[in-house]
């Protein structure tokens, strides 16, 4: 336990000490929300019929729609990149200090994943500073509901990161692999545009993407689709379904939880075989 805590503590401590990284982490979400989001907002508005839009569709606010996706993106990015520290530790030698200690490899792996999840959780919560500028209402109960979900998602993604990091020797290699992985997963998750009216092959990819369910959970918590007009809900792509069964929030939790168990198991097994 002490070992898990020590590994976790080191990552969290270093995260808060790195001011540049803290500030820099706002850049991407800011650009997506304000530049991309505001631009798209106008375009989508006019596609929906502009001023003459009928009834519920006039309520479609693209920036609002994107906000849960941006939170998802931030959590996802931070969690997966947290594993970069493993590769860097290898490059700078610190991994040896860790691996030759009597701590069990499993504790080290779990400490790393928990460290990454915690950092990603903080990073995701920091995105809430954008709330006043985009018109969504976030209440304390919503935040309390967001925290465990963010942590769960971050845990699953950090495990994927560790799995990849354990197999790679250089940071450049790691960054390459992550870039190649990150973009398709983001685009196919519904974070940046509504998942409606897609071609069948794309629909398939969306449904097997774990991020889809993560982003959908954030949407369900923040946008509260159950209070929306059905037509608007459909336009925002909030009726995620498989074989005509609309997936519920609890089912999504279950999917992500099962996935995170699988990923953390694989990552731990892989890490147990790592050479110092």
């Amino acid at each position: 336990m002490e070992a898990i805590y020590a590994i976790w503590q080191r990552d969290v401590l270093k995260f808060f000490r790195d001011k540049a990284r803290l500030i820099g982490s706002f850049a991407m979400p800011f650009m997506f929300l304000i530049l991309f989001g505001s631009g798209m907002s106008g375009a989508i508005g006019s596609m929906m019929g502009g001023e003459a839009a009928s009834g519920p569709l006039s309520d479609f606010n693209f920036v609002e729609f994107m906000f849960p996706g941006i939170i998802g993106m931030t959590v996802f990015n931070t969690a997966i990149f947290s594993a970069l520290s493993v590769v860097q530790d290898r490059e700078f030698g610190y991994l040896r200090e860790i691996l030759v200690s009597p701590m069990s490899r499993t504790s080290i792996a779990i400490g790393k994943v928990l460290g990454g999840s915690t950092v990603a959780l903080f990073q995701g919560l920091m995105m809430l500073v954008f709330v006043p500028f985009i018109g969504v209402t976030i209440t304390i109960p919503i935040i309390l509901k967001l925290i465990p979900v963010m942590f769960l998602v971050a845990f699953a993604i950090s495990s994927i990161g560790l799995l990849i990091a354990t197999s790679l020797k250089t940071s450049q290699g790691f960054q390459m692999v992550i870039q190649v992985l990150i973009f398709p997963m983001l685009f196919l998750s519904g974070a940046l545009f509504p998942l409606s009216g897609m071609p069948a092959w794309m629909d398939f990819l969306v449904k097997i993407n774990p991020l889809t369910y993560s982003v959908d959970m954030f949407k369900k918590i923040i946008l509260q689709p159950e209070q929306m007009e059905p037509a608007l809900r459909e336009a925002m792509g909030l009726n995620l379904s498989i074989f005509n069964h609309v997936i519920t929030f609890s089912e999504e939790i279950l999917v992500v939880a099962v996935l995170s168990i699988i990923f953390v198991l694989f990552a731990t097994i892989r890490f147990n075989r790592a050479e110092a």
Partner: peptide, 11 residues
């Protein structure tokens, strides 16, 4: 104590 440094230089 290894040939190469294994300290965490940021701490």
């Amino acid at each position: 104590i290894f040939q190469e440094s294994t300290l965490d230089e940021k701490l």
